Every structure is written in C-alpha cells, then in structure tokens.
Measured scan of single mutants.
Amino acid sequence: MTEYKLVVVGAGGVGKSALTIQLIQNHFVDEYDPTIEDSYRKQVVIDGETCLLDILDTAGQEEYSAMRDQYMRTGEGFLCVFAINNTKSFEDIHHYREQIKRVKDSEDVPMVLVGNKCDLPSRTVDTKQAQDLARSYGIPFIETSAKTRQGVDDAFYTLVREIRKHKEKMSKDGKKKKKKSKTKCVIM
C-alpha cells in the first residue's frame, strides 16, 4: 500500500485542523484551538488504489514558523489553505509557496490551493482571484467548507493525484537520464 505524506499549511484560523478532522473523523470542530502540530493517518481508496494518507496539520501562528522547514522537508505534497473571508490569509499563500519551493529546492512541488469556509456569506476573496492565482502557479484550486464537508475529500484526493503525477514524471525523467548515460565512448 502506497503511503502519501501530505502537509496542510496556511495562516492561523483558516480551518486547516477543521478540514483535516472532517476528512479523518467526519465531524466539524467549530471551536478554535490553535494547533502546534498534529499528525493523522487514514486509509482510503483513490482511483481504485488503496493508500495510506499521513497528514500533518501544522501551526499557522507566526511564533511556530521555525518548525516549518522541518515538516516541509518531509512532506510530499501540500494543501495551501486560505479562508475566503480573510484576504490576508490569501496573500500569505505566496509566502508559504515560496518557502516550500526553497526548502524542497524545487520549482515543481505537488500543491493544491484550497479556499476554505465557502459556506460563509462574508467572502472577501473572489473565486476568480483564487483561480487566477492557482493557474499562475500551475496547481489545482478547490473551494471547501469544513463545516458542510463540501470539497473536503476532493481537496485531499486531488493532492494525492498531483503527487502521483509528480512521481510518474520524475521516474520518466530518471529513465531518460539513465538511457543517456548508457551511451559509451570508444577510443581507438
């Protein structure tokens, strides 16, 4: 069974824990209790493949930012979460993405942009803004509501699919490099 290491990042209060708990335990946590770091595991079937999701729910508070490099190193894919009623959390996505790329030393890291709290009427981040940002990053965008469960499975499952595509691409690139290195030079 394939294991996928997913990391949920975003500013404090955007609903990272609520999304994760909704996926794992099928219930909505409405009281806000700032996370330092929590880890969850769940076995699911995605596109006919049974897999184990190892999900790291991270601290959004700035005082825990020193811990970010460590979990970013171990993560295979990242859910970059903002709240649709919090423009600052949307603007912060850029910083999370840049930090992930720096730590992973790669421009090509599996990510999904997630606009959470889409059940709320007080939207300050337009869907088109988020779609445009995701398009500019070359990553999928999904709106979710941890409260109603809308888009929750889709967000995590899409990230797994992005990781699969990335692994497939990397193995193809690896095979191309191996083929090239088999060419021999004969000096007579």
Rank of each mutant, 00 (worst) to 15 (best):
89 S>V: 05
119 D>E: 10
107 E>A: 13
103 V>T: 08
86 N>M: 03
89 S>C: 12
96 Y>A: 05
100 I>A: 04
72 M>Y: 02
117 K>A: 14
87 T>H: 12
80 C>D: 03
79 L>H: 02
101 K>A: 11
101 K>Q: 12
83 A>T: 09
99 Q>C: 06
108 D>F: 09
71 Y>E: 02
102 R>L: 08
70 Q>T: 08
113 L>R: 00
81 V>G: 04
79 L>M: 07
96 Y>T: 05
98 E>F: 02
122 S>Y: 12
84 I>F: 14
113 L>N: 03
79 L>D: 01
125 V>R: 11
118 C>Q: 14
113 L>Q: 02
90 F>W: 14
63 E>C: 07
108 D>E: 11
68 R>H: 05
72 M>K: 01
96 Y>K: 03
100 I>M: 07
80 C>M: 12
121 P>K: 09
119 D>L: 05
88 K>F: 09
95 H>W: 08
80 C>E: 02
110 P>E: 02
84 I>H: 15
121 P>C: 08
108 D>M: 08
94 H>A: 14
87 T>E: 15
70 Q>E: 15
119 D>Q: 05
104 K>E: 04
71 Y>R: 00
74 T>Y: 12
102 R>C: 07
113 L>C: 07
74 T>A: 09
80 C>P: 01
74 T>R: 05
126 D>G: 10
119 D>Y: 05
76 E>Y: 12
111 M>N: 01
78 F>P: 00
117 K>E: 12
112 V>D: 00
117 K>F: 15
110 P>N: 04
83 A>L: 03
73 R>S: 10
87 T>V: 12
71 Y>H: 01
82 F>Q: 04
67 M>P: 04
100 I>C: 05
71 Y>S: 03
78 F>G: 00
65 S>I: 08
82 F>R: 00
97 R>Y: 15
117 K>N: 14
75 G>D: 00
111 M>Y: 03
75 G>S: 07
86 N>K: 07
109 V>G: 03
110 P>V: 04
102 R>D: 06
107 E>V: 13
111 M>R: 01
86 N>Y: 04
68 R>Y: 01
92 D>A: 13
105 D>H: 09
68 R>P: 03
73 R>P: 06
93 I>G: 03
103 V>H: 06
102 R>G: 08
122 S>A: 11
117 K>D: 12
98 E>L: 03
83 A>F: 02
98 E>R: 06
99 Q>W: 08
107 E>F: 09
99 Q>T: 07
124 T>D: 14
83 A>N: 15
96 Y>Q: 04
65 S>C: 08
79 L>P: 02
77 G>R: 00
106 S>F: 11
88 K>H: 12
115 G>S: 08
75 G>K: 02
99 Q>V: 04
100 I>Y: 01
114 V>P: 00
122 S>W: 08
88 K>C: 10
114 V>M: 08
114 V>E: 00
82 F>S: 14
74 T>N: 11
64 Y>L: 08
113 L>F: 14
116 N>L: 15
112 V>A: 03
70 Q>F: 03
90 F>H: 07
120 L>C: 12
67 M>R: 01
98 E>Y: 02
116 N>K: 00
86 N>E: 10
68 R>E: 06
97 R>T: 14
126 D>C: 10
116 N>I: 12
65 S>L: 06
64 Y>R: 00
122 S>C: 11
115 G>E: 06
115 G>N: 05
79 L>A: 05
102 R>Y: 04
93 I>L: 11
126 D>S: 10
67 M>E: 01
81 V>A: 07
112 V>P: 01
106 S>H: 12
77 G>K: 00
121 P>I: 09
112 V>T: 03
102 R>A: 14
88 K>V: 10
75 G>E: 04
118 C>W: 09
90 F>R: 08
97 R>W: 15
125 V>A: 13
65 S>T: 07
99 Q>I: 05
72 M>P: 02
125 V>W: 11
65 S>W: 06
78 F>M: 03
88 K>L: 11
90 F>N: 04
66 A>H: 03
110 P>H: 06
107 E>S: 12
122 S>K: 09
68 R>W: 03
73 R>M: 12
80 C>A: 05
93 I>A: 08
71 Y>V: 02
75 G>Q: 05
101 K>P: 02
103 V>C: 09
75 G>C: 10
108 D>K: 09
75 G>M: 05
117 K>G: 14
94 H>S: 11
90 F>G: 07
107 E>R: 10
73 R>C: 08
118 C>K: 07
64 Y>A: 00
118 C>A: 12
71 Y>K: 00
69 D>V: 01
110 P>A: 04
105 D>W: 06
71 Y>D: 02
120 L>E: 14
105 D>V: 07
74 T>I: 10
72 M>F: 03
64 Y>W: 07
100 I>W: 05
69 D>T: 05
64 Y>S: 00
70 Q>H: 10
71 Y>Q: 01
105 D>Y: 05
69 D>P: 05
95 H>L: 06
86 N>G: 13
105 D>R: 10
67 M>Q: 00
76 E>K: 05
98 E>Q: 07
72 M>V: 03
89 S>A: 13
123 R>L: 11
109 V>A: 06
90 F>A: 10
102 R>M: 09
73 R>L: 08
101 K>E: 10
118 C>L: 10
125 V>N: 12
103 V>Q: 03
75 G>R: 04
111 M>H: 02
108 D>Y: 09
106 S>V: 11
77 G>L: 12
72 M>T: 04
67 M>D: 02
97 R>S: 10
119 D>A: 06
103 V>P: 01
110 P>W: 02
114 V>K: 00
124 T>H: 12
84 I>D: 15
107 E>M: 14
83 A>Q: 13
104 K>S: 10
80 C>L: 14
111 M>P: 02
113 L>G: 02
81 V>Q: 06
84 I>K: 14
102 R>Q: 09
97 R>M: 15
99 Q>E: 08
73 R>D: 06
81 V>M: 12
126 D>A: 09
101 K>T: 10
66 A>R: 05
108 D>A: 08
117 K>Q: 13
109 V>P: 06
90 F>L: 15
92 D>G: 06
89 S>I: 05
124 T>Q: 13
105 D>P: 07
124 T>V: 11
80 C>N: 03
122 S>G: 14
78 F>Q: 00
96 Y>W: 15
119 D>T: 07
107 E>I: 11
77 G>E: 00
79 L>G: 00
67 M>F: 05
109 V>E: 02
75 G>H: 09
72 M>C: 06
65 S>F: 06
114 V>N: 01
65 S>Q: 09
123 R>Q: 14
108 D>N: 10
78 F>H: 00
80 C>T: 04
98 E>M: 04
74 T>V: 10
78 F>A: 00
122 S>V: 10
124 T>F: 10
102 R>E: 11
84 I>G: 15
79 L>F: 05
77 G>W: 01
68 R>T: 04
111 M>E: 00
64 Y>Q: 00
87 T>G: 10
116 N>A: 15
125 V>G: 13
92 D>R: 06
67 M>A: 01
109 V>Y: 06
89 S>R: 04
69 D>C: 02
96 Y>E: 02
115 G>D: 04
76 E>D: 15
93 I>V: 12
113 L>T: 04
115 G>L: 12
111 M>Q: 01
95 H>F: 05
75 G>A: 15
102 R>P: 02
117 K>L: 15
68 R>F: 01
114 V>W: 01
123 R>S: 14
80 C>I: 11
126 D>V: 08
75 G>Y: 11
107 E>G: 13
73 R>A: 11
88 K>W: 11
115 G>C: 13
66 A>E: 06
99 Q>Y: 07
76 E>L: 08
86 N>L: 02
74 T>K: 04
64 Y>H: 01
99 Q>K: 04
114 V>S: 02
126 D>T: 09
73 R>H: 09
81 V>E: 07
101 K>S: 10
103 V>F: 13
67 M>N: 02
67 M>C: 03
115 G>P: 06
69 D>A: 04
71 Y>C: 03
81 V>S: 06
118 C>E: 08
125 V>L: 12
118 C>Y: 10
77 G>P: 01
69 D>M: 02
83 A>Y: 02
69 D>Q: 05
103 V>Y: 13
68 R>D: 03
113 L>A: 05
78 F>L: 03
86 N>T: 07
81 V>P: 04
69 D>S: 06
74 T>S: 11
103 V>D: 05
73 R>W: 06
114 V>R: 00
106 S>N: 13
